[in-house]
């Protein structure tokens, strides 16, 4: 879906009109199995474009992470940690998102669930929060920008070649408990998470 945003002198008006247009389009597009995916453009994107203006005020905030910050969000904090890697340009990623939002609601408070977008940095305040808003997603979402994707992929799992979507669950000690390249099967995720949550006794941490 391509939106024709114009940022002329009366940019705000145009942008508001654009957002209404987007809402109408989104409403009609819901329910279709194949939503057209926004294609990445190789044309230069104007940095001055006030993209934020088209977002509703309560759209989620997406956090930009570099390689170093990315390593930190991969570490579980006492609970199982589920991470979904996706992008707005990835069809199957968009298709499975309602399932992820549902899982997030079911396991809220029991696990940590975050998503990492591999969109272009321009989408940090545009396509990514817009999509999360449409999906009513509440998971903390990060956008990874690194010159060394190779290292980032390896940090997630040795089994991963970088294909999106990827959903990984780490146990509280950081070991991979679930690894799924392609759309998740929600029932498998539930089984895996329940297994982790009912594991015998509290998590034992090594004494230094």
């Amino acid at each position: 879906m391509m939106y024709n945003f114009s940022f002329s002198s009366n940019g705000t008006k145009t942008a508001v009109a654009g957002w209404v247009f987007v809402l109408v389009l989104s409403a009609t597009a819901f329910g279709q199995t194949k939503r057209p995916v926004k294609q990445p453009s190789r044309a230069p994107v104007s940095k001055a474009a006030p993209v934020k203006a088209v977002l509703p005020p309560d759209a989620p905030t997406v956090t930009l992470v570099d390689d170093l910050a990315f390593r930190k969000i991969l570490v579980p904090n006492g609970k199982p940690l589920m991470i979904n890697f996706w992008a707005t340009w990835c069809g199957p990623c968009r298709e499975e998102f309602p399932d992820l939002v549902k899982l997030d609601g079911e396991f809220k408070g029991k696990i940590d669930f975050i998503t990492v977008s591999l969109d272009e940095q321009e989408e940090l305040t545009a396509g990514v929060p817009k999509f999360l808003f449409e999906m009513k997603a509440k998971m903390p979402t990060y956008l990874l920008v690194t010159p060394d994707e190779e290292a980032a992929i390896a940090a997630v799992s040795k089994e991963w070649a970088g294909a999106l979507p990827l959903t990984v669950i780490y146990d509280p000690k950081g070991a991979v408990a679930y690894f799924r390249q392609g759309k998740v099967k929600p029932e498998d995720v539930r089984i895996e998470l329940n297994k982790l949550l009912t594991a015998d006794g509290p998590v034992v941490t090594a004494v230094p």
Binding site: E150, I153, K185
Partner: peptide, 16 residues
């Protein structure tokens, strides 16, 4: 060897 982000190959028998 080098990896980069891309699309998953949709294999037979997968729920695409």
């Amino acid at each position: 060897r080098a990896n980069a982000f891309g699309c998953t190959i949709k294999k037979t028998g997968e729920s695409n």
